[in-house]
Amino acid sequence: MKGNEALAEAAIRAGCDAYFGYPITPQSEVLEYLAREMPRYGRLVMQAESEVASINMLYGAAGAGFRVMTSSSSPGFSLMQEGISYMAGAELPCLLVNVNRAGPGLGTIQPGQGDYFQATKGGGHGDYRLLVLAPASVQEMADFVFLGFTLAEKYRNPVLILSDGAIGQMMEKVVFDQAPVPDIPKPWATVGKPAHRSRNYITSLHIQPEQMEQHNLRLLEKYKAMQEEVRFEEIATADADYLLVAYGLSGRIAHKAVDVARHRGLRVGLLRPITLYPFPERRLAQLARQVQGMLTIELNSGQMLEDVRLAVNGRVPVRHLGRLGGMLPTPDDIVHELENILEVQHA
């Protein structure tokens, strides 16, 4: 199954009530798959007139208490940022998917990781965070839909699956063995006001600065609580004296590089962040006491690099190897870079 299709199928199985989207390469399979499959289950799927409309339809549906999802790719996802900010402000759970392509601007339709900053630092206006999951396989594209809905509803916060063109388009084995995400009560939803309760309203507006600050502080508490959701994968770190850090597709390529490097006698390990927010900073700080240095592999000019450096806090040098514009590094490129770095460090 293609990554995009696995994600779409998982959405149905997880109990997604409604999907709103707009075509854009390389994620159109999600909308196509759901347009074909979802109505069979009596669920709603709509092709909106724009990404701006999609995200606001999501707002309306989430505000009425439904489990909702949208997906897009970089230029389209930029268009959604306003609505995402409103949803974060109004504390509406939803699952967002950005199948990252290389940019800026219209860029190319080939895979990229240039939206890391946008994904992990908020993305739209205002002071907010999304929970960000970075799948590295078709299986994770499916699994993170279940996880994403669960976390979104637990924290009443938008969750973003930050994928990329390659993970979206590639095919791998995928097993669907998860039960639908259990429904939790949403007493805040706007479904019509019965006589026994006061009205519900969904808003991100708090015009009094005192109230706005209180709201901001409450969100901040939530983001602190979200820190316990940090997830990552470690490959061969136990005895590693050098560490690769890479997520998503780059994480897969780096994994192979670890295999090749180990074969050549280099004691290299890999930390693959699965949640990009919260970021595995504590574990990286620990590993900084063990390794001589770190190298981030990214399909951008060095974005996660900054978070790794913050986590490591100057203890070891952190370098970056990136390919841009939709080009991909090969495992050999990474091993060459490693050999160069380690040679210099030893010399």
Partner: peptide
């Protein structure tokens, strides 16, 4: 009554989802 505050200009998109689902 139960209400939602939409982003500027997006009320019809918000209402579309609410009405379609209910």
């Amino acid at each position: 009554i139960d209400m939602q505050e939409a982003a500027h200009g997006r009320a019809c998109a918000v209402a579309t989802a609410v009405k379609r689902l209910m």
